[in-house]
Design a binder for these strands. Structure first.
Lengths: 323, 323
DNA sequence: TTGAAAGCGCTAACAC
DNA sequence: GTGTTAGCGCTTTCAA
């Protein structure tokens, strides 16, 4: 076995409790003793055993981070930012992937419950009630979901959708489609509400759809049948699948149909057309979520909600409707 | 605090050890007792505390997975496969990102050492010796790195590079460039060796470069100056950056210059030209790595090396050299 | 300022 | 087949 607090105690000629104190409350220990202990610890290569610490303190210094799909390029920047922020605050992040399955999501939260101090739920697919129930087992922070009793980081995709629709309207579009996402998705709901409130254009709702390229591909027939001149897709992946499928049917983007995505995952890629999209503040959300979670772990705060701005990035997949 | 083994013992009228046994060695306990204990446990919502288990058994049921950059689309499929496989084998995976920094890599391994049963090091940037030293602290399995004493999963990128170069040669190219990756990268080294062994073409070596779009962009000037008609890039990200930069200088791909990437991260995307690339068996590697790691955790096996095949996917970024 | 001792939740001999 | 007991590595009273 590795070197323990006891080895350090023996090497520095003090009791284990003094060693413990040297690390957890250094100001309570004599400077000379402290130096001696630290030297011995360094010498032996001592590193505290987090599992043992967790047992007495109840704090693991680990956070769980659950996403629907790591392979969706929307998530990695958020994960990276969360990890970086957690690292700064002396925590580690445990990432897990639900494969878009609410049941797996629930299982993962329960599995995490005992081995982390809190869980970040990103774009959950679980029902509100289920999340609120689980939040009694372990501190939770949700990203892109609004609940009464759970702290949340929201990206204002409703506002983004409104901007996107206004952009289409200003180009002359009068009838557009909203290709919605998974049924459990809060962002999808926000987009629906924003679209329903649009005044200058008629909106056709198509969905729910899986939030993937496949989802977009599968929506092609409905989009064509709906006789719209513009589409706002649930996310960039869906938009890309859609554009591909449209291409196979001879429908050109943006000449015949304008398409807008959400997330801005394609920046700097070779995609043609370059996608007009709603950019999401993913990195900021990751950092903020960690801060909120850590805050709700050690303080009994009322549920905070942080809302971050989105923005419309106009590129080449939108244009005037065909005459 | 949550419900413990003691609560279950009280509720079912047995001693804690019987409860413990019911979970860890059910065959050693009377069927009736077992049912009673299980019922009580279920009733109270008992879930074993992994940290406490870890303290006695020395097994955390957690695995660490370290990658250079989660945002590089090469990694997510590997991560997903590893997580899925770990889940099947009753383990969780802790993912961390080094931001391509060997020092962070080392820190992360040490931080993981106490809280996981083993660590998967994917495309490490650390020196061989450092890795071998660290492998004494915690069971390690490396992906895409070959070491004497550490089990490894290798993707045969050398063979892939040979195929890629043969492909270029068969199209008529006689002078090509290899845009290499980071200096610590084993795959980059394998590619260099394969390129150095090529007989039908002259190879110019350009690098090292960061394994990103930026890296490709920055290599444009050297590529143009080297007067080659074909390029094999360290990975798809570099290839894409390169093609973008080339486009800005008026060099067309594949008409003026052929480009081949590695990883096959762009399948089904809208990229133009669609990238000719060496496809990597990432998902298989993720699964295999978990199996190897778990094997080396509980058995004292000699270091196994698994080599997985790569394949050349010919698309649109390669063609005949200009006349 | 330091030591002694109890205990976190669980497992693993060993005894009955 | 089940209970007893000691202890994993650490923190945290409480005394000294």
């Amino acid at each position: 076995m590795a070197v323990t607090i006891r080895d350090v105690a023996r090497a520095s000629g003090v009791h284990v409790s003094t060693v413990s104190r040297t690390f957890s409350a250094p100001h309570l220990v004599n400077a000379e003793t402290r130096i001696r202990v630290l030297a011995a610890a360094d010498d032996l290569g001592y590193r505290p055993n987090r599992a043992a610490q967790a047992l007495t303190t109840g704090r693991t210094h680990n956070l769980g981070l659950i996403v629907a799909d790591i392979a969706n390029p929307f998530f990695p920047p958020l994960i990276k930012a969360a990890q970086a922020q957690a690292r700064i605050r002396d925590h580690h992040v445990f990432v897990a992937d639900t494969d878009e399955d609410p049941l797996v999501e629930k299982e993962l939260i329960q599995a995490f419950a005992k081995q982390v101090d809190g869980v970040l739920l990103c774009s959950p697919r679980l029902a509100d009630r289920a999340i609120e129930r689980l939040s009694r087992d372990v501190p939770l922070v949700v990203v892109n979901r609004r609940l009464k009793s759970v702290p949340a980081v929201l990206m204002d995709v409703g506002r983004g959708a409104t901007l996107a629709i206004e952009h289409l309207a200003s180009l002359g579009h009068r009838r557009i489609a909203l290709v919605t996402g998974p049924s459990g998705s809060w962002t999808s709901k926000e987009m629906r509400e924003a679209a329903a409130a649009a005044e200058e254009v008629d909106v056709v709702f198509l969905g729910p759809n899986p939030p993937t390229g496949q989802g977009g591909l599968a929506a092609v027939t409905d989009v064509i049948a709906s006789e719209v001149t513009g589409v706002l897709a649930y996310n960039d992946l869906v938009a890309i699948g859609l554009i591909e499928g449209l291409g196979e049917r001879g429908v050109r983007v943006p000449e015949d149909l304008s398409v807008i995505g959400v997330d801005d995952i394609m920046s700097g890629r070779l995609n043609r057309p370059r996608l007009t999209t709603i950019a999401m503040p993913t990195a900021a959300a990751g950092r903020m979520a960690v801060d909120l979670l850590l805050q709700s772990v050690d303080e009994e705060e009322p549920a905070t909600v942080a809302t971050l701005q989105t923005s419309l990035v106009v590129r080449e997949s939108t244009g005037r409707p065909p005459p």
